[in-house]
Design a protein around this nucleic acid. Structure first.
Lengths: 236, 236
DNA sequence: CGCCCAGTTGAGGACACTCAATAGCGGTGG
DNA sequence: CCACCGCTATTGAGTGTCCTCAACTGGGCG
């Protein structure tokens, strides 16, 4: 895996009040008053594609909000193979484990260009003493992560290769329905779906031949959503 | 599915102070002082095997602590098939979603004899206003659930049928290593591992023939843990 | 230009699924 | 008490999907 330098930008004057994902971000529930408390600067980082945000086992001192992009969470099996257990997208939170002083349980690796807020654990802790509202907000994050995990298991580890690929493509188009979908490496797709790269490749090729997906510039895809939905649900 | 009447027992004088799973239960972090606040009675219920604790979509008004037994969380796929996304055991917490006023996302069904504490959401909410410690405790529950979900995905949806069955048996023996393990219906096992009942049956039969597992009374099994561990890790 | 990596395609085989028949077990009723 | 039923588990035969191994293609970049 290539290592890519991490560019860091400080928000300076700017703060979470103006954040693009404010409505879905961690501090969404806090009113204006509370923002006064954010004296501590929140770091904003940019990652390019195969860059690692954190590594399994690291002691984290930060929680992250994904403002833009896609991040994979990777677990390593005893036999050395790797499995992508979840994908995070715009508005999702990463590294909540750090709040519990636990090491991160995955590798977190950028799949696309990513913009990520770094929120020091100390800040969250300080605020949560005063704001029981924040606690609620945090639990919502956990809940969302868990719901995604369950969905991941049900949709992407069950059924034929065709079904899994179709469901994954639809999942990827959920953030912006109708918009083109970024397609990444066959190896990653395989690790998400529990399939080999060859099987994924064959399946994608077949979908392309039958015009259910169409290549666009920049490795983007447009989908025949209705048809893919039928496939995903087993209507062959 | 048979419906089994639910026997309800009130704890009366007894409370969480004396609970068998106190050290791992929801209120584990609370000192003696805090127990004074538990004026509200905590209901203790007993479920027998295929009884349902709650149903997907229900508006929950309670969180549950599993004091004893095994509970499956079931999700239903669009094609009507069902998938068991997680198994809960002694000390685990169920229905945390109720704290966020969310409907339960699964069916929760007892796989064995179960003893379960029912904790009203209102009680948790009242306490959590005063006790930021409880918030921490709750997040730990979420984190544990999420870790189990990830593990479930990595261990029970990957590899050959032999590997999956071996790993599941080992998982079941984790609560009490060396102790016999309860074995349940092939259909449930299949839904946990993403396999058909026939494949599970063949695999179990083969493990029995090769003496890696041994039948005991009451549908219990003793395991050759070392051998199963080798299988689970792919050392054939 | 040629290397390297990612993706594609092919052939063969292994594994799990499907369909179907049989065996075991517990409960019910004659 | 035994015969019968229903359900679950087991076993078998045949098929299909996906995996493995391997060759080939094509674009990016030194």
């Amino acid at each position: 895996m290539k290592t890519v330098p991490i560019r860091v930008a400080w928000l300076g004057e700017q703060n979470c009040r103006d954040c693009a994902v404010r409505s879905s971000a961690l501090f969404a529930g806090l009113g204006e008053v509370d923002f006064g408390e954010l004296h501590q600067p929140i770091e904003d980082i940019i990652l390019e594609s195969p860059a690692m945000l954190y590594r399994v086992g690291e002691r984290g001192r930060a929680v992250f909000t994904l403002r833009r992009g896609l991040v994979k969470l990777v677990k390593y099996l005893p036999d050395g193979n790797q499995r992508i257990v979840r994908l995070l997208r715009q508005g999702d939170t990463l590294g909540l484990e750090a709040l519990l002083s636990q090491p991160y349980p995955h590798d977190a690796i950028a799949l696309t260009h990513c913009e990520i807020c770094t929120i020091p654990v100390s800040l969250v802790e300080r605020l949560s003493h005063e704001q029981s509202r924040l606690c609620q907000e945090l639990m919502t994050r956990w809940q969302r992560a868990l719901a995604e995990a369950d969905r991941w298991l049900a949709e992407f580890s069950t059924g034929t290769a065709r079904q899994r690929v179709a469901r994954l493509l639809l999942w990827l188009s959920e953030t912006a329905p109708g918009q083109p979908v970024p397609l990444f490496g066959r190896e990653d797709l395989g690790a998400m779906l529990g399939l080999t790269t060859e099987t994924v490749s064959r399946t994608i090729a077949e979908l392309r031949r039958t015009r259910l997906i169409r290549e666009m510039p920049h490795n983007q895809l447009t989908l025949d959503q209705a048809a893919l939905r039928r496939i995903g649900e087993g209507m062959v």
